[in-house]
Amino acid sequence: MAQLAMNRPEVIQSLIDGVDRYNPDNISILEEYLATQCQNEEYDLMANLAALKLYQFNPHLTNDRVIINILAKALTAVPAPDFNLCLYLLTEPMIIDESIKQLTALHQLLEQSRYAKFWETYKSDSAYEQLVSEVRGFSRAIRSIVARVVSMTHQQIASSLLESYLDLSGDDFAAFVKEQNWELKGAIVQIPVNKDNEAKTVVIRENIKFEQLTKVIGYSNEM
């Protein structure tokens, strides 16, 4: 849910808001919408969950490729819990399917922030690339997840480490750093201070609301 679909078409909006979402005839609309998301590097969790819901109620409609695409899309939303929210709508026999198991393995690595291991696994078998092949800009999306987490956590990071997190090197790496407005200083990448990576001590002060005082004000009236 981190990325809200800003340009959700009206058709889809009214579909997921009303009882029409249960109408099996609408599955094709949701499937096409997913295809558009994959094409245009957009993401709309609510619509995709509505598609999974229709599969949940009408198992005969289930389209494995669509489920794979939805899950691959959800991978690009980490650290939001979207991937699991999709899994909950599937069934036990479905999630032990080989493709879904592979996607789940990738998801676990991302959740655990084992980025170097993620890329290693991802490239170890062409099956993985095949799974996410319909999601345009998949690698780019994963890299921006890494960038977000790294910039939340670090002010400075060794460039060799960052390279392994991003699976980039040389000019590509330099270009990526520049694109993020980070600074490459020798063997170190400098990340500007933001609200998540500054670690400042805050004293939380008590905030007294008017309602808390009503009783006391009441006493003063009695006097």
Partner: peptide, 20 residues
């Protein structure tokens, strides 16, 4: 936050609740 190999830690404290 992490600066290279150092972790800098900050803890938020709750001030005393005099009013309460």
């Amino acid at each position: 936050c992490i600066k290279q190999d150092m972790i800098h830690i900050a803890e938020s404290k709750v001030g005393r609740r005099y009013g309460d």
